[in-house]
Design a protein around this nucleic acid. Structure first.
Lengths: 133, 133
DNA sequence: ATACTATATGCATATCTTTGCATGTTTGTG
DNA sequence: CACAAACATGCAAAGATATGCATATAGTAT
């Protein structure tokens, strides 16, 4: 049943690759493969206007690379695509343990989001775990 | 010396990723990571006009992903970028041993290039060997 | 030389992507 | 309810990329 296609679907693959072929999106994905982040943090990280960031997130979300999660007034995103996670691991290297969250990296001192408040769960959020293909 | 940049160069990487983010170029690279092929074969494989194929090859060549090699009237291309070879391995999977060259795949019966003639060296051309990063 | 074959190049047009910005929606708060 | 904060959406202008096609070049053979 189905086509005996041992040929890769170059069209579909190249469509997905295009999502990484953009400096800001690649950067966003590099962050979101490590831990979930809210839009306000990504906005600070990229140093771009908020609608700009939301648009890139929309694109990634509409292609099911990332998933949103509303927490009160904030929205957290995380990577959910295992294949893309594996691509990122090859392209950007493995996730280092010395990684420091955006809030500490960029000194978001006056950020009121739960992650910057004491609202963050003890020991931080559960790490993102994706089975690599 | 130099910047202590543990940050990946997202701009440069995304530029390189763009080269794969195109169905015909991805297909070309998938062939050229296996064995060297002449333009006439790639033209037959993609079923696109020759200038179209040459233009994609030029782009890949100008970014040093592939290298040309003139043999008489024909030009052979092969993949020479190890990092991209590793990406392709992750994205398209490992190179299978059941691979059949384009000439046999597409029945290029009237192709006069050396590879289709008996001019091909005994046992075929040496396989392309690239050290994966 | 002449003509032929394989491939490359240049350029115009069409098409998709990116980016900026105004406005909309949702949730929380007084 | 009114208002503020965080984020999403829609749309248009600018920019980049893709494609088609005419023509150029470089080897080969006659």
């Amino acid at each position: 049943m189905g086509v005996d296609s041992r040929e890769p679907d170059y069209r579909a693959l190249s469509q997905r690759i295009k999502l990484l072929a953009h400096p800001e999106r690649l950067r966003i994905l590099d962050v979101l493969r490590r831990e979930r982040e809210c839009v306000c943090h990504l906005e600070a990280l990229l140093d771009k206007p908020q609608p700009y960031v939301s648009q890139q997130l929309r694109l990634l979300r509409e292609h099911d690379l990332i998933q949103d999660e509303k927490v009160g007034n904030n929205v957290y995103y995380r990577l959910i695509d295992a294949e893309v996670a594996a691509w990122l691991e090859q392209i950007l290297g493995p996730i280092t343990s010395e990684h420091v969250g955006i809030a500490r990296q960029k000194q978001l001192i006056d950020c009121a989001c739960p992650k910057c408040d004491a609202n963050e769960p003890e020991g931080g959020y559960a790490p993102i775990v994706i089975e690599l293909t």
